[in-house]
Design a protein around this nucleic acid. Structure first.
Lengths: 346, 346
DNA sequence: TTGTAAGCGTTATCAG
DNA sequence: CTGATAACGCTTACAA
């Protein structure tokens, strides 16, 4: 059906995009009728008219112009998903999951990559996008939108769902706290009584590290363990070596390290190898994401895998609630979303 | 200056955005004059008029409505970057590089992830997006847009820069051939007389593999070596083992493997370890991207690193030339963009 | 050198 | 039930 429609559209008007007047002509009604039927209640029209309009629209492959719609209405059905300047291993999966969920809610998603925080140009791109699209919402995956800009966007009428920052606690924050806690729980279960959190040090921002570390710290506090150390691990041998060396000084109890990602875990593993401490004997390592490459190194990584779909469901559910839409996803990530992949590093 | 302007705007008209008619009124000219001065040559107006208009615009904090502009112009300042359904390790770097470059040219970038080739939804999504946004351009990172659809989009008036496919040779294709050749040159320089190309087998598409392999093959032909074998490597232990086993049968000359990515190289390395062949003695491995994780495994990966910024500069330069903009980037990737990172696998 | 007026495609109001 | 008509804010011939 779709292919047929598109073919027809191509045959019909080479060069000019399909507009509502085309649909109106084909259906034998006025532009206003088309607009009404395509937006408001289909109820108030003759079934036959509705049928004709819908058929005509489908046949021509008609899509409302975002520009014109935004101009007339003041806002569009588009949601801008802002990706922070952060190293995210399974970024593609996350984006696809969010897009799919928003699509089910009737929103069209466009993804915008925020540049490095400093660059003035970075926020300019998003501003231009918001000005043009008047989006139904701006979803910030993690501190990509600075507070003052968020305010400016709200002033422009955009619904900014950016509660994921460290600044105000929200589901995103909760989710990351949970991740840290689950990693810590595994380490404790494996017998490690001294914990640490390892974040990534690669020049990019890390909006989630603090929450993850907080999750680890919370468990330590509950169990009466020492507060976890925090180390920043760069993805290179020398840096990893130094980072590990700072922690495995004396001959205290074995150290369990919860890592920001599998890449960081691999770095810690490399650092441990360089320093000459035994894994998992003296140091235990658990990564995050359960990425394939983690299973290819020796020894295989222990990692906390996440169900991406379920894990990001709450993001779209937030927007849905703003617009009063029904949604089946949970309001915040639960432990069932995660699962430990047992490797050889714990 | 900017803050001042915004404050004034806020004070002046709470609620309603500043339009060009406001500027015109304040400057004592017509809307047309404002538009002319703000867009075209400032030359053709009285310095005093120009001054007044500019001052008025600044004072009110006026910003052109992108929606209205798009509507009048027929297209927006938005560029859609289409990412193929491919596993790209440094995808984020590539996207950010392209975004930054386009931003400098005055475009706002949105990223569209093309679904699996078969899925009708994937191409339909892009079509809908193009119809909605009327983008200034559609940039295809690699065979994400099938030829028929590209034609259809062009018919809709979109500027499609999608010459990167294998179908028609272009800068992108050249670049990938070059990558394969440079990898092969390194392997040959290290003494390997039997080459192979290893692509990634993960269910996603691989738009660049053919060109990379062609680059390897070309060098082999020039040097009178046997044509390179081609193996598909999945990112898991068992699969990697099998892939390696098929190639290192007898006791022929040492085999040099040029890999699609560092992840694939790590998989080949793992496979070799499992099969029990020596690296770099019996098998030499060179990855691609020079990713950090490649330097953290043991032995360290030899890899062909790429300067992402320079490597993708030609993409934005293509669009710039279409719009007659000045750009300093080269028209196609050159060898200087790449550099071999010597590790322990060759 | 500057102004007038006709669109661009959609939505909302108000008649018929 | 359906259809004119008027915005929305900007660009751009064309006229003065």
């Amino acid at each position: 059906m779709a292919e047929q429609a598109e073919e027809q559209a191509a045959e019909r008007a080479p060069g000019r995009p399909v507009t509502s007047v085309d649909v109106a002509r084909l259906a034998g009604v006025s532009r206003a009728t088309v607009s009404h039927i395509l937006n408001h209640q289909v109820q108030r029209f003759t079934p036959r008219t509705v049928e004709r309009v819908l058929a005509a629209a489908a046949e021509l492959g008609y899509v409302k112009s975002a520009a014109a719609r935004a101009l007339a209405l003041g806002h569009s059905d588009i949601v801008i998903l802002v990706v922070p300047d952060t190293t995210l291993s399974n970024l593609q999966d996350v984006i696809e999951a969010v897009s799919a969920q928003l699509q089910d809610l009737g929103f069209a998603t466009v993804v915008h990559f925020a540049g490095p925080q400093g660059a003035a140009s970075g926020t300019a791109g998003l501003t231009a996008l918001v000005d043009m699209l008047r989006p139904a919402g701006v979803l910030d995956l993690g501190e990509a939108v600075p507070p003052e800009q968020a305010e400016r966007l709200r002033a422009s009428g955009a619904v900014v769902v950016a509660e994921y920052g460290v600044r105000e606690a929200g589901p995103m924050s909760d989710g990351n706290v949970l991740i840290g806690r689950l990693q810590a729980e595994h380490l404790v279960a494996q017998g490690y009584r001294r914990l640490a959190y390892a974040s990534l040090d690669d020049g990019r921002r890390d909006p989630w590290g603090r929450d993850r570390a907080a999750g680890v710290a919370a468990l330590c506090a509950e169990l009466g363990l020492d507060p976890p150390a925090h180390l920043e691990v760069p993805l290179d041998r020398a840096g990893a070596r130094e980072a590990v060396r700072t922690l495995v000084g004396g001959d205290g109890p074995a150290l369990g390290v919860a890592c920001f990602s599998d890449d960081v875990a691999i770095a810690v593993l490399a650092g441990a190898r360089e320093v000459g401490v035994e894994v998992p004997g003296q140091v235990g390592i658990i990564g995050f994401a359960g990425s394939p490459v983690g299973q290819l190194v020796a020894p295989r990584l222990t990692s906390l895998a996440a169900d991406v779909d379920a894990g990001v469901a709450f993001i779209s559910s937030r927007l849905a609630s703003v617009y009063g839409l029904e949604v089946d996803g949970a309001q915040r990530p639960a432990a069932e979303v995660f699962e430990v992949v047992q490797g050889g590093t714990t």
